[in-house]
């Protein structure tokens, strides 16, 4: 437990940008969970000077944020005293899993949480301290450090604080700071943030790149071969699921079996291009109608949100009825 200190927190530019976007587009303060992995990285410093390359450099422990879940409000998984409610936390975690369409990603652990509050000091508040303290006491949430020399487990201890400046006179619009909650002596340790971007300064990251999204299932044969029939139920369930997905996919490509691709060769090819174009056109039309559906439903969601907000203010204005 002594050596649970992180060197720094790394976050990719797009993730940070979308986090800030979620915060700044929300109507009030927000909180949410941070996901990612912690790994021990040996710093890459290639040098022509042979004398220096003999030094063994200590590895750095870096927490890399690869995803987040914004609850859209505050007190989403804790109460007013900052005690984490494991039920609501699990609900959020489930939501994240289903959002991420992947089953139990091995790289994606709960790293910690974030809080975004407009026009406040860039210092952890009383409740934020209590939440971090409560979260880091939940041993069941611990996760292994990748590439660690000695196997180590960490508990979610990262806290990212997002604020906007108190004064209107300042030209920047957002501020953020990362902390690690050290459960050994119960305090927030400020950590530097590395924003991973493309560019010469980040070449080192290619060495430690880990694809975050899982490789898609590419099952070519949908019918189980007779050889595999005795496999256990799990496998069967998965196959059923997959065949369901496949069926859905097939609807999009109705009348255009893979077998038809053979017609791309030889004499029939000329006619067939027209057919393919037709297929693409149909697919585009479907995508477009889907986009329209999404647009309509999000308009409805927005309308409902505005309505809710009005109601809330109404209630707040007349404290008599709640």
């Amino acid at each position: 437990m002594e050596d649970d200190s992180l060197q720094k927190v790394a976050i990719s530019g797009p993730i940070l940008a979308s986090l800030i976007q979620r915060f700044s587009s929300s109507s009030g303060a927000v909180d949410g969970l941070l996901f990612g992995h912690v790994s021990d990285v040996t710093p890459l410093s290639l040098s022509d000077d042979s004398s220096s390359s003999t030094d063994t450099q200590p590895s750095l422990r870096v927490a890399t944020v690869t995803g987040f879940l914004c609850s859209g409000s505050t007190n989403s998984f804790y109460d007013s005293l900052g005690r984490v409610d494991s039920q609501s936390l699990n609900r959020l975690l489930d939501r994240h899993q289903s959002d991420g369409q992947a089953q139990a990603q091995p790289h994606d652990s709960l790293l910690g949480w974030f809080s975004g509050r407009r026009r406040t000091q860039l210092r952890p508040s009383m409740r934020e301290y209590l939440v971090s303290s409560s979260l880091s006491s939940m041993k069941q949430l611990s996760f292994p450090v990748k590439d660690a020399v000695n196997p180590t487990n960490l508990i979610p201890s990262v806290f990212l604080l997002l604020t906007s400046p108190l004064s209107d006179q300042i030209i920047h619009t957002h501020e953020y700071r990362a902390f690690q909650f050290r459960s050994s002596n119960e305090f927030f340790e400020p950590k530097s943030i590395d924003i991973v971007n493309i560019g010469p300064a980040f070449r080192g990251h290619y060495g430690s790149f880990i694809p975050n999204s899982p490789f898609p299932h590419l099952l070519c044969e949908m019918r189980a071969s007779p050889m595999n029939e005795d496999k256990n139920d799990d496998n069967l369930n998965m196959m059923k699921q997959n065949s369901k997905y496949q069926k859905q996919m097939n609807v999009c490509a109705e009348g255009f079996d893979v077998g038809n691709l053979t017609r791309l060769l030889g004499s029939e090819a000329a006619n067939y291009t027209a057919g393919l174009e037709d297929l693409y056109e149909k697919m585009l039309a479907k995508t477009e109608s889907l986009a329209r559906l999404v647009e309509e439903s999000s308009a409805q969601v927005l309308e409902q949100e505005n309505h809710n907000r009005k109601l809330r203010y109404k209630v707040a204005r007349y404290p008599g009825f709640e």
Partner: peptide, 15 residues
């Protein structure tokens, strides 16, 4: 810090 979005919830404090 109160929250105008949810005026019923308890305030938070930055020391």
């Amino acid at each position: 810090m109160y929250n105008a979005e949810s005026p019923f919830s308890a305030p938070d404090i930055v020391f």
